[in-house]
């Protein structure tokens, strides 16, 4: 449905999006993930034909964003970060206006307005001025506006930003609900959101693609080796980290032991084991038998958050190594 090839957006001094390529299949929900300023909004704006790309191509439903923007726009519903509302319009009037802009008219238009009002739960504010709506309603009217012409592709830029937890849940449910009919790209920097709503993740950082995979694969990738976090304290105010490390490494099944942090006589170790070997019991026994206190022992399953941090940090440290000079000049 969406094919992006080496899409690039350069400004005078910065490159906001740098040669991103990905594909989205029909009917998928894709989470577009990245820290603030990573280039999510810019990429979305290029997909919606709001910004022309500097290089590369993007196709939506087979139409190029540069060559046939009108065809692309007909097939896209877009909710920008700030819902594009006219404060002096009433909800129904606004939805009618947007519907007309997207090419609807007559009975069709009335039917769609009724439908999206129902669907996005804004029917009870139909006659209210948009400027007086609460944040949650504004967001939902924005969503209603995006789906009014029943577009094949929905592009949502941080659809849950600034909502309260209840509204966030409602919005997520609504988006999941819409997924059957539309192909959805939604951007966010909130990770649980992606885990809960999306099937596929595209992670970008500083304009570059870091990873693109299904949520399950990413989690599996991170859990490739099982690891446990162990917090150990020395009995009489001292703890020899190398000795602990050595002892833990001697346990059968343990492949690697890392000291993650140390404060006085307490230290946290990450004990990685070979796949399928449970070493927790042995670790606990070894620690106690060696005369140390076992303060904590928990599995270190990587959340998407850690994967994300890991991936984005890796990327930036590599970049620093490559060209410290060019980074300086960018600042």
């Amino acid at each position: 449905m969406i094919t992006v090839k080496e899409l690039t957006k350069r400004y005078a001094r910065t490159t906001a999006v740098d040669q991103i390529s990905f594909e989205v299949a029909k009917g998928q929900i894709v989470g577009f993930l990245g820290p603030n300023g990573a280039g999510k909004t810019t990429t979305m704006r290029m997909l919606t034909c709001f910004l022309p790309p500097s290089a590369g191509t993007a196709k939506v439903a087979g139409f190029d964003v540069l060559e046939q923007p009108l065809e692309v726009k007909r097939r896209i519903g877009y909710l920008p970060e700030m819902p594009p509302l006219y404060p002096e319009m009433e909800t129904a009037e606004y939805l009618k206006f947007v519907g007309k802009l997207k090419g609807l008219s007559g009975a069709d238009l009335r039917k769609r307005v009724d439908y999206v009002c129902d669907r996005c739960a804004v029917a009870d504010v139909r006659q209210k001025l948009l400027g007086k709506l609460s944040k949650g309603y504004r967001q939902r009217v924005g969503l209603a506006q995006a789906i009014i012409h029943n577009p094949a592709v929905l592009i949502l830029d941080e659809p849950t930003a600034g909502l309260d937890p209840k509204q966030i849940n409602e919005t997520r449910d609504l988006i999941k609900d819409l997924a059957g009919e539309h192909t959805i790209i939604l951007s966010t920097h909130i990770l649980p959101e992606v885990e809960q709503t999306c099937e596929q993740v595209i992670i970008i950082n500083k304009g570059k693609l870091v990873a693109t995979d299904s949520v399950r694969n990413l989690q599996a990738r991170a859990r490739g080796a099982e690891s446990v976090l162990v917090e150990i304290a020395g009995r009489n105010g001292a703890l020899e980290v190398p000795i602990v490390q050595q002892k833990l490494e001697q346990i059968s099944g343990v492949s690697r032991v890392l000291c993650k942090q140390q404060v006085d006589s307490r230290a946290v170790f990450e004990v990685e084991s070979q796949k399928g070997r449970l070493v927790r019991g042995d670790v606990a026994r070894t620690v106690v038998q060696s005369g140390w206190d076992l303060n904590e022992l928990r599995p270190a399953a990587m959340s998407l958050e850690e994967i994300f941090l890991q991936l984005t940090e890796q990327e930036s440290t590599e970049a620093q190594k490559e060209s410290p000079a060019s980074k300086e000049s960018q600042k």
């Binding site: 704006r45 919606t48 034909c49 709001f50 009108l70 065809e71 726009k73 007909r74 896209i76 877009y78 920008p80 700030m82 819902p83 594009p84 509302l85 006219y86 404060p87 947007v98 802009l101 997207k102 090419g103 506006q145």
Partner: peptide
Amino acid sequence: RNGTIELLATSPIR
């Protein structure tokens, strides 16, 4: 200022 320019610019209209 309203950000509605984004709505107009992403609608199928010249």
